[in-house]
Structures are given as C-alpha cells and as structure tokens.
Design a binder for these strands. Structure first.
Lengths: 137, 137
DNA sequence: CTGTATCCGCATGGATACTG
DNA sequence: CAGTATCCATGCGGATACAG
C-alpha cells in the first residue's frame, strides 16, 4: 500500500531524521548492499559463492551487510545442517522489488557518468588527465 | 538514450571500482546530496534559503556537497555581484533527470518501510536471527 | 565452511572561528 | 551573505585471529 502523503524531500519538504529518503539511503548507501542485492539476483547463493561474486568484499562486511538485509526482511538466510554446514542466501519478495528502483539509479548512472566525468575535468581545470584520475593536492 | 546492459551489478556482474553502481552510490550515498537535490526542485535558491530548507545541515556540509554537485555538472552556481553578495543554486538539466530515479527509490522506501520495521522488530525480538515473520514463498 | 571477535586506519561530517 | 579553515568525535570498513 502506498501512502499518498507528500513528505517527499524531492518536493522540497524539510529534512527529518525519519524521512523516507534518509531511511533508504542509510540502508543502501553503504559500500556493499547494492552489490549483494545484485549478486543474489538468481536465487539461492552460498556464502562462499557470494564472496567470490563480490570481488573485494571482506568476510566481515559480507556477513555484516547480509545480517542487515536479513534483519530488514530483504534477504532470507537458510542453514542446511550438513556436515560442512551450508548456508544459502536469497532475496525475499521485498528484496526483489528493491531491484527495480536500484536499476533505475544504475541506468541513470550509466547514462550520465560520461557527462559527469567531462564536467569534473572542466571543473578541475584539467586539460589532459584521463577521467577517473583524481588528484588531491 | 543509452542501452544499459553492459555490466550491471544487479545482474550479478562482478564488482569493479569503476562500476556504475559504485559510482552513483559514491555520489548520492552521502548524508545530504539527495536532500539538496530535493531542496533545489523549484529553481534558483539562495545559499541561506537552502540552509533553511535543509534543517540540520551544517554550513560546511552544505558548501561541500554543493561543490561536489557543481563539479559533477548537476548543480549550477550563479553569483550576483551585488553589495551583499547573492549566490543562487539550481539544478542543471542533468541534475533534474536525477530526480526520477531518486523518486523511484523514495517511493520504494515509503512503500516498504512499514514492512521493514516489522521485520526488524521480529528479528530483534526473536532469540535467533531467522524470523520468517515477514515473508514466505 | 561459515561465521565471531578485536584492533585500527581513515574518511565523513559536526562545531567553531575567521574572511571578503 | 557566503563562504574558508581547522580541530576533532564518530563509525565504516579492512586485516587478522579464532571458533562452531
């Protein structure tokens, strides 16, 4: 159900600690959540497989982020009590619905990153450096 | 526009430092960017007015975040050389297009925050992590 | 295999003082 | 009015060691 209350900060409403924008960004704004949601797109995935899919993630952050997603009801955790214990993760229905808005964001990103890089170069006054090469004085 | 299927992490592609998801999240994942984009929805807004609209933001973070958005070409900065100097900010065309995917995310948030809270309560209340209170296949 | 526990560097961002 | 500069608390996230 969708409340039609217009508290949208995108319409210029004042910030509140509990506003939807802040809540959702607190959730997906971290380094790994979106990547985990992506890595879980095709059903049950084991912990170790997840580690392999998400290159660069540490064990700690994978566990920690999965716990957060599970707590939010976006990810389901299934333990198979076998000899070497097997744990599989998958998106819940709610988790799957999150992929839509995330995809919209990603498509915006893909469509505009080029322009953004150009703008950054112009802003920095760089006349030659390749994009993504950031210099910090 | 642009065909977007190259390397979407939402389709399970491996993480790379320059992947769109990471880039976009680095951009909007901070505490204030989305709120500023929202506060700029209705045209030219002065710095002081922006501070008033975004309750709780510090002067430093407002300036810093605006600089980042300007550098990315999402916000335009206009200085009016009057006696008390007047500076106005507005969204560029690119900045305006960002509102669409942000709105999608916010609407997801509004639609699901209730379920998320329920799931969190169940998770926190239960002895063991697996609640299975919010979802079933 | 799937975690938990601990230490710790570093970036984020808040508070404050100062400037043009 | 619209910043800039500086100090500093907090917490994210990486590395490592250990456990069920």
């Amino acid at each position: 159900m969708v409340t039609t209350r217009s508290e949208s900060v995108l319409d210029g409403n004042p910030y509140r600690a509990d506003c939807p924008s802040r809540r959702i960004l607190d959730r997906i704004g971290d380094r790994w959540t979106v990547l985990i949601v992506g890595a879980l797109h095709d059903g049950d995935v084991r912990f170790s497989e997840l580690r392999r899919r998400i290159e660069g993630i540490s064990q700690k952050m994978l566990t920690q982020t999965l716990r957060g997603l599970e707590r939010d009801g976006l990810v389901r955790r299934t333990v198979h009590p076998e000899v070497p214990v097997r744990v599989e993760y998958s998106l819940t229905e709610a988790g799957r619905t999150l992929r839509e808005p995330l995809r919209a964001l990603e498509e915006w990103s893909i469509a505009h990153l080029g322009d953004v890089s150009v703008s950054q170069d112009a802003y920095d006054g760089a006349d030659g450096p390749p994009p993504a090469a950031a210099e910090r004085p």
